[in-house]
Every structure is written in C-alpha cells, then in structure tokens.
Write a protein that binds this DNA or RNA. Structure first.
Lengths: 246, 246
DNA sequence: GGGGAGAGATGCCGC
DNA sequence: GCGGCATTTCTCCCC
C-alpha cells in the first residue's frame, strides 16, 4: 500500500472511531515512565476506539510497546516518504512515535462488544471455598464473616482455629513464594498490633510452595496448607478435554 | 467473508506459518490455569508464527484471552455454519476454543523482525547509577556489591555507610509501597542472620513513597531516600518533547 | 485519583 | 525446568 493512501485511510478510520489494525515495517520510540527504542522491523499495530495503542512483534504474548487508553493520535507524512504516527498521553506524560517505512495491510472496522469475561478459579474463589468448607483448612476451623474480613482490609480469610486462636489465612492460586510469606507476616503483625493479641496464627494456603518460602514460613512459626483452587466447571472441563482428543 | 473461505484461508496461513490477524464476532472458552467464558461479541484475534494466540476486545490494553507460545491450533466448520478454532497447549494443560459466527476481515502476512527493544530507566538502571554515583544515597556511602544473592532474595545494592555500617538498598522505579518495605525488611533480616551482624541499615530508594509504606518503613527503623530513575536519553527526550509541541 | 493487591499475569535471568 | 523478581506491568476494588 502506498504511504499517502495509508495516511488518508488511517485518518478516516480515526475519524470514524473504528478499531484499526495494520501490519507495517516500522521503528518505535517511547518516552514516559521509561524510555525505549526499537529499530525497524515488521510489527502489528492496533488502535482501539478507546485510543489504546498496541504494538506487537511477530512473537511473544506481550506488546513490545503500547500507549494506554485515552491517548491522542496524529499521523502525517514525513519528508522521506515515511508515515509518522505521533501519540501522546498528556495526563501520563507519555509519548510514543512510530516511523513507518512499509505497509503490508490496513483494516478498520466498527467492532461492538459489551460482554465481560467470566472467570473461575481465582484467589477469591479459593477464599470463598475455604469459608464455605472450613474443614479444608483443618478440623474445627471457624471462619469469621465476610464483612468482618473487609473491616481488616485485605486479609483473604480470618478465623479461629479449634483452640480459638485467631488465624490469618493467605491464599495463593499457584506456587506460594517468598513474597506470599512476607505478605502473610505483614497481615499477622497488623492483626496482632491492631487487636492487641499476642498469639495469632498464620497459614499459607496454596497448591504448592517453594522450598525457600517453606523455610521462611516455618522460621516465622507459620504453616503451609495444601489447597487447590476450586474448579467450578469441572464437569464441563472433562467434556472439553474429551473434545480435544481428536 | 463467508465461513468456508475464512477456514480455508486460515488453514493456508497456518501452513505458511504467517502472522494471522482477523476481526470476528465470536465467543471464547478457556480452560487451564483457570476457567473462563466470554459471550459472543466483536474481537480482534492474532495468531503469531510462534503460535501465540491473542484475543482483544475493542477496549483495554490487555488481551481478554490468550494462549502462550507453542500452542497447537486447529480450525473446522461446525454444523451450524460457524467456524470453530480449537487450540491446546499440552505442556501447560491449557485449552481454548473460539466459536466464530461472523467474520469482518482476515489478514495474513510473513512478518520479519529480529530486533530487540532497548529500554532505559529500569530498576536495574537505578541500581547501576547508585553504584557509580554513591553520593546520591548519602555522603561517604561505599557500595560493595550489586545483586547480592541471599536465600531470601536478591539485594539491589549492598554497601557501607560513612560509619561503616552495612546497608541494604532496595530500589523502586516508581512509588515505594508496602510490598517494597516488606522486601527490604526481608533482605535486612537475612543479612543480619547470615552474617551475624546486629546492626544493618535499610534504605528504600525511589522517587515517591506511599504514606502507609513510609510509616511501616520508619516503624522498622529504615530510611527513605528520594532518587529518580536515570534518563539516559535525556537530551534526546527534550528534542522529542519539543517535537510534540505541535 | 491514589493505595493496595491479584493476575490464566509476562518476561528475564540465574542455577 | 524451577526460583525469584521487575514490569512503561494491567486491572480491579475501595477509599
């Protein structure tokens, strides 16, 4: 595609507030929270109606460069037969420039999507499960109400063990690591000082724990409890997996 | 675009190992580390040559669903005039299905890009700067090592202050928060126990600090030092910013 | 808008 | 591969 045609079509798409996707050989220049430069190469660029800008290289899951929602975008023709896209986000003081030397394709469409993703198996789901099925922590464990939790802020599960000792539980949906133990420790200390209680138990509930995290956990007198994040749609999973046996 | 044409063109693009981008009305179904479902709506789908799969809604910076590098992808025609893309990653035990009811566009191209992004202003850059310009911490500070490894984690900068007291420095490139203080505390305690030293200083070096983090920092006898992450390309930045004054 | 924390985090580097 | 950690993290929730 010729540069001038690209520029006029891109401008028109911006005007219409379409979703814009193009493939191009370009270099990228970013200045804001950090600074970056990316030499010329082939990339996929997306401009969304909310003025999010994404630049993807032909490999990897994360965009190599991007601008957040609410970015202002301008395009013009440089002297040397290149298209230049300048984007800026004044609130965030971020600036990104694309120098485009070759265009492979351009698509723009009005895309409509009001749906929100439904997700199961999160840390919150784990906490909900542990409150409903307290025996998964240990026999005689009594979780306190959910409202009581929010009063203390960000503690996943708070309760009393069979000996009525206040217990803080931190859930992790995957491997418990040093950060998780530090976090648990912070909460236990917060509870101790805010409630003026000397003895508070700490439990890290997760499917696995790293060796160093386990050592640190035990050093602080905390405990590890193996818990799997709940799979609400397990029945459905099995069906799905079967369908994949092609 | 008609469903069968889409399927055959998609298959051909897969065969050629092209980068594939299409816009479509579709529903999405994921099972793996968690489970998710997304009802029908308009989305942008990208399949990269490394078999990364990305699904973007028309707003927001993050993909709503995705599959990581190395996913196997199949497409076929369902009974009810829909195209179905089934993707699976056996190593990660992840499965994602797209049910496509309408196609807005399809592009596939061989995109070549061997470039790597150059980044400045990271936490590592801050640590490098503090070692070269130790006075930025305080007069008489003598750095001894970088990325000192402990069982409880990696220390950004380790050194001795003007009174020869061992000092741990944790750098944050933006706002120092509770997590950062916890991290610093973990390192200081580890150094104390592993080296058998009673007095070890802890300094959090960052441009800003949250009020709660500051309180926690002082509670533990640590200090906050205001440091900006280095801007290596400052000269260039100023030029850039000027260019944006249009 | 800031603070705090999760995420199907991703990506990087080290062992 | 796992471990530990930064990230232009992004996103959400709550104040």
């Amino acid at each position: 595609m010729e540069i001038n045609e690209f520029i006029s079509r891109f401008k028109e798409a911006l005007q219409k507030n379409h979703s814009i996707i193009f493939g191009a050989q370009c270099s990228v220049n970013y200045n804001g929270r950090a600074e970056s430069f990316l030499r010329q190469g082939d990339r996929i660029v997306i401009v969304k109606p909310d003025k999010t800008l994404l630049i993807h290289q032909p490999s990897g899951a994360a965009p190599v460069n991007y601008m957040k929602e609410g970015t202002s975008i301008n395009i013009f023709n440089s002297n040397d037969k290149k298209a230049v896209i300048k984007s800026k986000n004044l609130n965030l003081k971020e600036y990104l420039t694309l120098e485009i030397s070759r265009i492979y394709f351009l698509q723009n469409h009005e895309l409509v999507d009001g749906e929100k993703i439904q997700l199961a198996g999160t840390e919150k789901d784990m906490a909900d499960m542990l409150i409903k099925e307290a025996h998964l922590i240990e026999k005689g464990f009594k979780p306190v109400s959910q409202e009581e939790q929010t009063k203390y802020g960000f503690i996943d599960v708070l309760g009393y063990d069979k000996d009525n000792i206040l217990t803080v539980i931190e859930c992790k949906r995957y491997v418990g690591d040093l950060k998780a133990v530090s976090q648990l420790r912070r909460y236990v200390e917060k509870i101790k000082s805010s409630k003026g209680i000397r003895q508070v138990r700490g439990i890290l509930a997760c499917p696995k724990i790293s060796p160093n995290a386990k050592r640190m956990l035990l050093d602080f007198g905390f405990q590890f409890k193996r818990v799997e994040p709940p799979k609400y749609l397990e029945q459905y999973d099995k069906k799905q997996r079967k369908l994949f046996d092609y």
